[in-house]
Design a protein around this nucleic acid. Structure first.
Lengths: 197, 197
DNA sequence: TTGACATCCACACAAATGTGTGGTATATAG
DNA sequence: CTATATACCACACATTTGTGTGGATGTCAA
């Protein structure tokens, strides 16, 4: 059950969000201090309200155990927008973009890195210069996977891997470019493309 | 100063990372319990080592105040890859993709939503069907901004906004499509494109 | 007017938590 | 041989922290 928050409750929730994003969830007394309350009881009342209305979850007898629910780690993906001003009903939410598992299924951060795309050799796959390509490190890949490959001259490129019987080559997604049949090694597989405007 | 970790120190760091991603940083005693140590002193020694080697930062007299540094909330963007096996030196890191400020400068999550792209009307801008478009809600936009617009028939589209003197229209990025000169309203401005493979 | 809810306060208490002191043992570099 | 780092232990102590009790005021719907 998710209900409307009052203005003051929103203030409390925003304060918690801020602290979570900065570092860690606040303690009750940190919230009190931050918002000018002189009693821990006041904050407890607010937290109870936020729990009841479905915005946070709490662990008992644990310090800082305030977990923000769906609305805050995740961005809703809207399927249909009805009225003029979009104030999204919950039925219209198709899913969420989670800022955490965006890149990784449950991968360790050690296995993931990013490269900035240079050039236009993959435009037909919707990958343009300046994009950030998030790569999962792995020594092998399947036919048709887009991979980060290391060429002889120590250059890194993003290309589609083509394996035919015994041979493998790199195929650009741009008709102005030729396939690369030189020696290369696979660094990893493309997980995500990110483009900031 | 960032130095190599021992295997056991890595275990401790990974445990902390796991807890951070699940919910909140662990307490000293939670770490001890999770890794089978019977003394809080042991954990303190490990934390000191992690601090000294530059992997975490700590707040004093604050519960759970373990802050993971760059390597863990952020994915490194590699500029050059030297040797065969990429074990990235720190000099090669061009920047970081932060999972938090990916979408928002410092926006409230209330002002941001996402739409899944349908159709190929924006392919020439590198936006293809299935992409997730993250939109910042706003009623106005500048000339040449890519925007989410609401049409008369309650349909949402992603198009480039063109404002000439007194008129405004929507321009697709695909030569097979015509500009839209019908009535529309601006829902918001494109912030980020995300494509998962 | 009764009850539910929001919005505050003070204060006490137990449990959770970080820190300090002082050990033991092993390995490695100078 | 000595200093330094790693890898553990036990335990005491002060502080931080969540929770509980009890109270006050105002609003709003039944």
């Amino acid at each position: 059950m998710v209900r409307e928050l009052t203005e003051k409750q929103k203030k409390v929730l925003e304060f918690i969000c801020e602290k979570v994003r900065e570092n860690i969830p606040p303690t009750i007394r940190e919230i009190a201090k931050g918002l000018g309350f002189s009693s821990t009881g006041t904050v407890r009342d607010y937290l109870n309200a936020l729990v009841k209305k479905g915005y946070v979850k709490r662990g008992s007898n644990k310090s800082r155990a305030i977990e923000l629910l769906h609305t805050f780690n995740k961005i809703p993906i809207i399927s249909t927008i009805a009225a003029g001003k979009p104030s999204f009903a919950y039925e219209d939410i198709e899913g969420y973009v989670d800022t955490y598992d965006l890149f990784l299924g449950r991968l360790s951060f050690n296995d993931v890195f990013a490269v900035r795309v240079k050039g236009d050799s993959m435009v037909d796959a919707g990958i343009i210069s300046g994009d950030i390509a998030v790569i999962k490190k792995q020594p092998v890949a399947d036919n048709n996977d887009i991979i980060a490959a290391l060429l002889d001259n120590n250059e890194v490129t993003l290309k589609r891997l083509k394996t035919k019987s015994n041979t493998a080559f790199l195929e650009p997604a741009n008709q102005n470019y030729q396939p690369i049949r030189a020696e290369f090694s696979i660094i990893g597989k493309l997980l995500t493309i990110i483009r900031k405007y």
